[in-house]
């Protein structure tokens, strides 16, 4: 189903290629052209949204490696993102290191914290692990809120904008390119991690950890690797968030956001490359749609309850998560596959 009819593989390289038909290449190039020229026709408002989508895609891609491929549920991803954001802001702000060091440092730091809180995963799974990652979320945020000598009394209000060499990326357009490029690298890397020995080990652990161990997969090493990779992505995303929004406070990384990340991979499709992208775009556009629409609705129907504007978005997110789990647990990515297959086999697509 993933391969169009009439396409055959004559070599290993061909077999492993991600983009192989002419249509795929055309679509890819068209997409890249649209993305790279986006600042020309997006206003600043939509560019800001695109930036937030890009950052969320990076974080959720990491979560997808951890939860979607390796099966280790983490409901503390916003906490790990906070670790990255603060690490990077402190490295660049306090120690005057270049942005790239802050970015990578954020990833590594978040990864290490992730390993620390991933240790329980060696003895417990499922619900227990979910609880321990919730605990991680609250402990991390508490430390950030109270370690004021490092993290500032009310957050860090003057984070330096991202910069490479002498080039300071402070306008939405330059930030867009930075985030776009890193997002593409992140997705590409995630796709390839999933296809390597490590990724296959993750999938084996997810499907049956006992069988995986019997086959010689070192659970200890691979589970912690999954935590490291997943949280590394979160750290990178956090760092980008810090250096593009230029202000940091613990409120950016709430428990609610962690839940929403889980919702995004479920809506997009667990364990697929396109899943996180589709899920993030779905939720963010829904969010934007609601913020645009609800004040108008509130004006049109004055009888609506006063909290309508603030409460309707979380309610819809929750509803979306529940409905997707009930009616399409494989997410939008699966629907997209079905659509592609239907298109390919068109007159006989039953």
């Amino acid at each position: 189903m993933t391969l169009p009819t009439g396409i055959r593989n004559y070599g290993y390289a061909e077999d492993m290629a991600i983009f192989r038909t002419r249509t795929q290449w055309t679509l890819l190039i068209a997409l890249l052209i649209i993305l790279f020229t986006a600042p020309l026709w997006f206003g600043n408002h939509w560019l800001g949204i695109a930036n937030r989508i890009g950052i969320a895609i990076i974080a959720v891609t990491g979560l997808n490696i951890l939860t979607g491929y390796c099966g280790q549920l983490s409901i503390g991803h916003a906490g790990f993102m906070a670790v990255g954001a603060y690490t990077s802001a402190i490295l660049v702000g306090k120690y005057d290191l270049p942005f790239i060091v802050g970015l990578l440092g954020a990833g590594v730091m978040a990864g290490l914290v992730g390993i620390l809180f991933g240790i329980p995963s060696l003895r417990v799974k499922g619900f227990y692990l979910a609880i321990s990652t919730i605990a991680a979320q609250f402990i991390i945020i508490w430390v950030i809120e109270h370690w004021t000598s490092m993290t500032g009394p009310n957050g860090i209000m003057d984070v330096a904008p991202a910069s490479f060499g002498g080039m300071v990326l402070s306008t939405p357009t330059t930030q867009f390119y930075l985030i776009l490029i890193i997002t593409i690298i992140a997705i590409f890397a995630a796709k390839n991690i999933a296809r390597t020995r490590v990724g296959r080990a993750f999938v084996a652990i997810r499907d049956n950890d006992l069988a995986a161990e019997v086959m010689g997969i070192n659970l200890f090493r691979y589970k912690l690797t999954a935590f490291f990779i997943g949280c590394f992505y979160a750290g990178i995303a956090g760092s980008l968030l810090a250096h593009t929004s230029l202000a940091m406070s613990p409120d950016y990384f709430q428990f609610k956001d962690s839940i929403l990340f889980i919702g995004m991979i479920i809506i997009g499709g667990l364990g697929t490359t396109t899943g996180p992208i589709l899920g993030v775009i779905f939720i963010r556009l829904l969010d934007e749609f609601v913020t645009q629409l609800s004040p108008a609705l509130q004006n049109a129907f004055p009888k609506l309850l006063p909290g309508f504007t603030s409460g309707i978005a979380p309610m819809l997110f929750g509803l979306a998560i529940i409905l997707f789990l009930i009616f399409e647990p494989r997410g939008i990515a699966h629907r997209w596959q079905l659509f592609k297959a239907a298109y390919r086999y068109w007159p006989f697509s039953y």
Binding site: I75, K256, I259, L260, I262, G263, I266, G311, I312, A313, P314, M315, L316, F317, G318, L319, A320, I321, I322, L325, I326
Partner: peptide
């Protein structure tokens, strides 16, 4: 995950 969705819904 469905109880998480529920959590979001109730909070909203």
């Amino acid at each position: 995950a469905v109880t998480l969705g529920l959590a979001y819904f109730i909070e909203g």
